[in-house]
């Protein structure tokens, strides 16, 4: 039975879309490593990049690890639970930067220390009024954003 013209158009569109979707997926999967915006400390240590490679590391700022040095120098530890990486940074930190919160730092890994020239704060998808957060903290329900840094 011959296809009607309408059916043939539908088949052509479906085939074209399927081919495109397959191509886009292949590109996405193939370039996964370069599409990833940052690496976790564990991935960073496993990769062991040279000091000339610019990369981004992301995770949570370990509680109690932030140390302010001379001038604008700050050092802190980024952790993903499995591994942690010391970070050194000179510059102005964003508003949302705080201990226990997500952070993404861009720079180079030099002798096991990540020397960052840019630090970005990562925000999660939680939005609540200040009073609610305070009330939750008082009740001990809320313990700070836990998923801030991805995995």
């Amino acid at each position: 039975m011959a296809m009607t013209r309408k059916k043939r158009r539908i088949a052509l569109i479906a085939a074209g879309m399927a081919a495109l979707a397959a191509a886009a997926t292949l590109v996405g999967v193939g370039m996964r490593d370069s599409i990833v915006f940052f690496f976790s400390p564990a991935e960073m240590i496993a990769r062991a990049p040279g000091p000339d490679q610019r990369l981004r590391v992301g995770g949570l700022v370990e509680v109690g690890s932030v140390e302010r040095g001379q001038g604008e120098t700050v050092s802190f530890v980024v952790t993903d639970g499995a591994a942690s990486l010391p970070v050194r940074f000179k510059g102005v930190l964003p508003d949302l930067f705080s201990e226990g919160q997500g952070v993404v730092a861009e720079g180079r890994l030099v002798n096991g220390v990540f020397v960052a020239d840019e630090v970005l704060a990562k925000h999660d998808e939680t939005y609540m009024p200040r009073e609610v957060a305070d009330a939750l903290k008082k009740q001990g329900v809320y313990r700070g954003a836990e998923e801030g840094g991805g995995s």
């Binding site: 990562k122 925000h123 998808e125 939005y127």
Partner: peptide, 25 residues
Amino acid sequence: LFWNQGLHQGASLSLDAKENVDDAF
């Protein structure tokens, strides 16, 4: 969802995400 290692936060609004955004917002 594919590349969860981005800087942008996840979707604030989806069918099950009402708990992420407080009623006030």
